[in-house]
């Protein structure tokens, strides 16, 4: 319940607003809506809305930032102020060694060995294996990336998985919305 209290405006995985600190390698990079380090990366953001729900941080080996300085540092402070989760996308062991890695909330990637190393350092609950996008389709069609989005969003606590009871109630049409539609709401 407490997790849901701080849900941002995106109420579905596919509507998550994903930012990044530079180009993110791999399929997960296709999910990025705005690069916070780009010239207009912060354009349109309100003082009380960081403009993103989650920020991907490419590892230093993949061309991402290694040092905490300049625009990278300012963007990370902004994320931290607004409780925006930062996820290091690690592709190499050395990605885990940088000062930037030390301040990311979670780590994600596809390399089993790198993720194993990350789990020993950061803990199982902070490290997430990114699944491949499912099926064919245009990159911008987010439903193709649903498993990946779910991994990220659930991993950083933006969405909590439904309990088995809630899932069952939904399947049986007993959810609140369904009861309301059927006119059986109390």
């Amino acid at each position: 319940m407490t997790m849901q209290l701080w849900l941002r405006p995106a109420h579905h995985y596919t509507r998550l607003r994903i930012g990044a600190l530079g180009p993110v390698p791999g399929p997960v990079g296709e999910l990025v809506d705005r690069d916070l380090l780009a010239e207009h990366g912060q354009a349109g953001c309100e003082a009380d809305d960081p403009g993103v729900d989650l920020v991907l941080v490419p590892g230093a080996g993949g061309g991402g930032p290694a040092r905490l300085s300049g625009a990278v540092l300012d963007a990370l402070i902004r994320c931290e102020r607004h409780t925006v989760p930062t996820v290091l996308v690690a592709t190499a062991h050395t990605d885990l060694d940088t000062p930037v890695a030390a301040v990311c909330r979670d780590v994600a990637g596809t390399d089993t060995e790198v993720l194993g190393d990350a789990r020993r350092r950061f803990g199982y609950d902070r490290v997430h294996h990114l699944p491949e996008p499912a099926g064919q389709g245009r990159a911008r069609h987010r439903r193709r990336y649903l498993p990946l989005l779910k991994t990220l969003a659930r991993g950083v606590g933006l969405f909590t998985p439904r309990s088995p009871l809630t899932s069952l109630r939904t399947r049986l049409g007993l959810s609140g919305r369904m009861r309301h539609r059927c006119g059986t709401a109390r």
């Binding site: 905490l68 300085s69 540092l73 402070i77 931290e80 000062p99 030390a102 301040v103």
Partner: peptide, 13 residues
Amino acid sequence: TVLEELVSAKVAG
């Protein structure tokens, strides 16, 4: 929170 690390990086810079 990681504000301690971020602010200290700002100070060192």
